[in-house]
Design a protein around this nucleic acid. Structure first.
Lengths: 109, 109
DNA sequence: CGTGGTGCTACGTATTCCGTAGCACACAGC
DNA sequence: GCTGTGTGCTACGGAATACGTAGCACCACG
């Protein structure tokens, strides 16, 4: 399994350690953005998260969750399940302008 | 090869046709965001783009470029090479807030 | 003809992802 | 204790995707 990309270290396709490169590597992994997106309105259990993502395989979900936890974007609260950390919520907020863009893309593309 | 995700149609993990789902599928493909990023300051030839992305294999680069062209984000101008379309530039602009976030992520994570 | 540039493809291998099944644990009701 | 149901999570085999190398066809320049 590929290592979780971290700013300051070499990632796939770049050895400069620049944070943007680590981010591009992280976000370019399948299901990762989708998982963050599905957590937008509150915590979800492992199984609820699976269902929300169209029943993706638990193998991949667990791999992505490990990467998200290692990156500090998601945390597991025993009571409520998986939730975005404050850092993860900031990422989501900065991603929101892309939702508007997607709407325009749908009308044009 | 997997179909290029389009808003209004079923994509991997969602059959609602919502634009955001198509976007999440598209952006979640390896190297795609990186390619858009490397085109941020002007057109690049196929080979220059390969080099900028850390010499990724031409197979994958060509696959991603086809997806980006099908999506209307990138166009090939015979004279200068591959360049972002206006739509692609809008996407890049809306992605820029994430660069700031990555810097903060580097300090915290 | 030779050299060097372009976009792009073939092919075999390595990695990643998927789908199904099922584990270990905790808690509730009986 | 014994079921039933929920939790997070893992094993394993097969499918899809990515990689790395080599090289093709084309075009311009000399």
């Amino acid at each position: 399994m590929a290592r979780t990309p971290r700013p300051g270290t070499a990632v796939r396709g770049s050895r400069t350690g620049r944070p943007i490169m680590a981010l591009l590597d992280l976000l370019g992994r399948r299901w990762l953005l989708r998982i963050v997106w599905e957590l937008r309105s509150g915590p979800l259990t492992f199984r609820a998260l699976r269902e929300a993502c169209g029943d993706l395989s638990p193998t991949v979900l667990n791999t992505r969750l490990k990467e998200l936890r290692d990156s500090g974007l998601v945390a597991l609260d025993g009571a409520e399940g998986y939730a975005l950390t404050p850092l993860g919520q900031e990422l989501l907020e900065r991603f929101l302008p892309l939702v508007d863009w997607a709407e325009r893309w749908a009308r044009r593309g």
